[in-house]
Simulated scan of single mutants.
Amino acid sequence: MRGEHDEASAAPDSVSRHPDVFLLVAHGSRHPAANEGVREVSRVLQGLIEKPVETAFIELEPPGVTEALVSLAESGRKRVVLLPLLLTAAKHVLEDIPEFVSAATRRYPDLEVTITPHIGVRKFFFDLLEQRVREAEEKSKNKKTRRSSRKNTVLVFLGAGSRHKKANAQVRRVAKEFSERAGFVRVEVGFIDVAFPRTREALRTAASFSPQRVIAVPFLLFPGALAGKVRAEVEEMRKEEPEIEFLCAEPFGRPSFLAETLARYL
């Protein structure tokens, strides 16, 4: 039986039907490093599965999903497996990607596109999150709090935010499980955009408990605009609450781990 955090661990039957090409789909960012991280996942994955892997983005970076599918169809590819590199089943998974695929298949009816489950939340992601938190702790410049117990630290777990309540609820579940595994007594959950509470409110709530330290953890795969917003809010809180040390972890995605995860079920 698949665990709660392994919802994409089994591939649809059609994945085994010898596709011509795989299409890795990510959100897209104005931050070049984020887009390059996605392309690196594609390159590593292609080496692992020894099949062509192309890349497309939902927004902000070309090629778009429909554009990429049309290009593949025009190059003679007939069977495509689409891999959503997304953490939660929100609007992009439930609405946007199916619409992009429909637009392409209306133009090329012979094009067969199989959409696999989104990558979701994997158990080993908790290890990656732990690494990022430790890296943040090690960067502490405050000798008093450098060895501070996590019992004196409030974790602020920040999801991207969605209009889909189930996606936000999943972020809350992941935050609770991670904080328990990592030994944090208290965790506050916030959202960078769309949903509430927003980042600043969650950070202020954390500060209201007068901890020695607050660590903001963005639940994001790659750096980009959203991660930048978190860093900016943390910097403002340092000014607002100078007696509390505020640290910020980096996004946890690492191309090699993500590619290996995808390769396991292809």
Score class of each variant (00 low, 15 high):
residue 1 M to N: 08
residue 6 D to I: 00
residue 7 E to M: 10
residue 9 S to T: 04
residue 11 A to V: 03
residue 18 H to K: 13
residue 20 D to A: 08
residue 20 D to W: 12
residue 20 D to S: 07
residue 26 A to W: 06
residue 29 S to H: 00
residue 32 P to C: 03
residue 34 A to S: 15
residue 34 A to R: 12
residue 35 N to Q: 09
residue 39 R to K: 15
residue 40 E to C: 01
residue 41 V to Q: 05
residue 42 S to Q: 00
residue 43 R to Q: 09
residue 43 R to C: 05
residue 44 V to I: 15
residue 45 L to D: 09
residue 46 Q to V: 03
residue 46 Q to F: 04
residue 49 I to N: 04
residue 53 V to E: 06
residue 55 T to Y: 10
residue 63 P to K: 06
residue 63 P to M: 03
residue 68 A to P: 06
residue 68 A to G: 10
residue 74 E to W: 00
residue 75 S to P: 06
residue 75 S to D: 14
residue 77 R to T: 00
residue 81 V to Y: 07
residue 90 A to G: 13
residue 94 L to V: 01
residue 98 P to Q: 10
residue 100 F to G: 03
residue 104 A to W: 14
residue 109 P to M: 04
residue 112 E to S: 15
residue 120 G to H: 10
residue 124 F to I: 02
residue 126 F to A: 09
residue 128 L to N: 10
residue 130 E to G: 09
residue 130 E to R: 10
residue 135 E to L: 15
residue 136 A to D: 13
residue 137 E to Y: 13
residue 137 E to W: 14
residue 141 K to T: 13
residue 142 N to Q: 09
residue 147 R to V: 01
residue 148 S to V: 06
residue 150 R to V: 01
residue 151 K to A: 13
residue 154 V to I: 10
residue 155 L to C: 01
residue 157 F to E: 07
residue 162 S to A: 05
residue 167 A to G: 05
residue 169 A to K: 11
residue 170 Q to T: 05
residue 170 Q to K: 15
residue 178 F to E: 04
residue 181 R to Q: 10
residue 192 I to Q: 04
residue 193 D to G: 01
residue 198 R to H: 13
residue 201 E to C: 09
residue 216 A to W: 11
residue 217 V to S: 07
residue 222 F to I: 00
residue 225 A to P: 04
residue 228 G to Q: 12
residue 231 R to E: 14
residue 236 E to S: 12
residue 239 K to Q: 10
residue 245 E to H: 13
residue 249 A to G: 06
residue 252 F to Y: 15
residue 252 F to W: 11
residue 255 P to F: 09
residue 257 F to S: 09
residue 258 L to C: 02
residue 259 A to K: 02
residue 260 E to K: 13
